[in-house]
Amino acid sequence: MIAKIYFAVISIIASEGGGSGLLSVDGGLAFWTTLTFLILLFILGKFAWKPILTALKQREEAIKESLAQAELAKEEAKKILAENQASLAKAEEESKKIIEQSRAYAENLKQQIINESKAQAQKLIDDASAEIERKKLAAFDELKNQVAQIAVDAASKILKENLDAEKNKQLVEKYIKEISKN
């Protein structure tokens, strides 16, 4: 089918022939084509292709560069993150240690205070006991003297005798001794 059409077309072209056929090259048109194309090539080359291709190249380079930079920044960020994590772990360790230390110190202090206060209390108690003992002894002596006086007074009142005080005292003591012996 195509072949038949082809031959029909060819026969037309062939029959045209001469100066106005489909396959004849028109010099005027060739001249205009050359002129138009060369001017177009010059204008486009100078005002279109050059800036466009430069811009495209620039853009490609910019993209390439920013990609590389992004890669670099990513790397940097990773490094910083690792660093941060390390320092965080270190700080945690440090704080743990500090807490531990302070706890131990507090414990120590507590024990010390307790001990000290215990000792102080003991001392107070001891002092108090000694004082009490002393006071007791003093009171006892006083009492003894007073009792002796009272007894003398009472005996002198009772006897209503004008006895020698010395003799009386000796007598009372003799009685007291006898009493305490019993």
Binding site: S24, V25, D26, G27, L29, A30, T33, F37
Partner: peptide
């Protein structure tokens, strides 16, 4: 047009 294509081909 063969004149145009021929010119382009010459270029």
């Amino acid at each position: 047009n063969i004149a145009v294509t021929a010119t382009l081909a010459t270029m």
